[in-house]
Amino acid sequence: MEPARKTEQTPWEPRIVAFLCRWCSYAGADLAGVSRLSYPPTTRVILVPCSSRVNPYHILKALMEGADGVLVSGCHPGDCHYLTGNLLARRRFILLKRLLAYMGVEAARVKFSWISASEGEAFAGLIREITEEVRAVGPFQGFLRETGEDVYDR
């Protein structure tokens, strides 16, 4: 997808890919819906079993495919359905953060959070917040150095 295409038709709106874990954050997003909490339609959710399923590559690839921001959200520490997956995800994320900074990606574009199944309001608030933060840094302009190829075989 090319980000430029959209801007021709309508004013630019941030596009955010959200990786949500099945057990907590996806349920929190559902609860926001059940509670009819309004938030901007900027996210595209990808359901994953656990935040630890999210590979840093997925985050980079999302940006390469046209996302302006990426959210990864898992269970709160101690609540992980798979015991420690969320902590693994956090560890990977810390490393990725540094890499992204090195590649010239603004910190606001990629966010990690804990949202529990009961935190509908927190989820809606988070999406509002991220949307504004990504809006502030504008459309994603690509990495300083293009990486290109898929690293996975089909």
Binding site: M1, K6, R15, V17, R44, I46, V48, P49, R53, N55, Y57, H58, K61, A62, E65, G66, A67, D150, Y152, D153, R154
Partner: peptide, 14 residues
């Protein structure tokens, strides 16, 4: 829920 499938989903964006 394989990597290739995640990538396919990302490619289907907009």
């Amino acid at each position: 829920t394989d990597d290739a499938q995640v990538v396919d989903m990302l490619k289907a964006l907009g």
